[in-house]
Design a protein around this nucleic acid. Structure first.
Lengths: 188, 188
DNA sequence: GAGGCCATGTAACATGTTACATGATTGT
DNA sequence: ACAATCATGTAACATGTTACATGGCCTC
């Protein structure tokens, strides 16, 4: 139930409407937590019913501007300090890796190099994002910087891993791969 | 809908009952894709209704042993070769990082070092797992090894990142942190 | 015959996705 | 007036979680 906490966190130091919050999910925050518009408005209503946020202003087009209540601030703090057990993990890419043997060696290598390219592309996108943000002393900026650095390290790791894995598939010594033996200069 | 594909993948080179498959999810495969017993039995029935698997034997206690059909094998292959757009990402730990400024510096550092310990523990667990598996020529073993290596690199990265992040929180130069200034020997 | 494992399932609920619906306001 | 953007919502469906229900088989 972390969408709830994402919303509380965003409302900590500025009030905003669902529409405002949506824009944050589509940009910076979307890199660590995704949410659809549909989900967001529903959750805002539930948060208000639970007394964790309240409407502090109403604007044109039915705009409702929300702010944290004391209870909301407490809940956010509780969530940040609790230690929880490990959550179930899911990584579709790794699931596919598990069953990579269903493909031919050539297909597997191609697949892994594609993953490397995807990771490289994500790394480039994060690098661009990094350059585009002015890291002045905003309140979210420390956390944002740390999260971004995680992303940079993660994608770099993924690219390296995928290229390494492609090498593993080809094999430390692949004697039967005669088709691609263009050069006979492999020593030792 | 990847639970479906996880089941297809597991049934590729050996038939098995829901109970058998459950055990795989609680051990090796559980590291990349989690599933509950409840979900699993439901999905098996749906897969059979869709003609992707079939009951090849019935045993005691209502045991039903499933095997892939041709259509199931095709679907698995399709899933492995399709290129899909990026899925919504969610990482609760990073979400918390985003809002770390709600804690004091001391609390933030403690929190980050705790994350480092968690990652280190996971790394140790994977290392133990690695040592316990005999990597003979099983059909799943190549994919399993690659996935495990990903996990090892990921957790190592996470630990390093968390320790680095703790350093960032303390600050490149923290003039007002007088309490911990035990040594005055910081050069430059 | 009793306890432990084998084996499958249902029900209630929470969370997330996709598509659609509705309309106000602003700028040109 | 027209389009773009602002703004909130509902409905149907898919996926995932937790708890409970039911009973057969095997070994000691």
């Amino acid at each position: 139930m972390s969408l709830r906490h994402a919303l509380l966190g965003l409302l900590v130091d500025r009030s905003g409407s669902g529409y405002d919050l949506m824009k944050l999910f589509s940009t910076s925050l979307g890199n660590v937590w995704a949410a659809t518009q549909s989900q967001l408005y529903g959750e805002l209503n539930r948060l208000e019913a639970a007394g964790l946020i309240e409407v502090v202003a109403e604007g044109p087009r039915g705009r409702k501007e929300y702010a944290l209540t004391g209870a909301g601030r407490e809940e956010l703090h509780r969530w940040l300090t609790e230690k929880e057990g490990e959550k179930p993990q899911r990584n579709e890419m790794l699931l596919q890796v598990f069953f990579l043997s269903q493909l031919t060696k050539e297909q597997s290598v191609e697949w892994l190099l594609h993953q490397a390219d995807v990771a490289a592309g994500q790394l480039a996108a994060l690098t661009r994002l990094d350059a585009s943000i002015d890291w002045d002393g905003g309140p979210i900026s420390l956390g944002g910087r740390l999260a971004l650095e995680y992303g940079l390290r993660l994608r770099a790791m993924e690219e390296e891993w995928a290229r390494w894995a492609a090498g593993q598939v080809i094999g430390p010594a692949s004697p039967e791969g005669a088709a691609e033996a263009a050069d006979t200069a492999d020593g030792s």
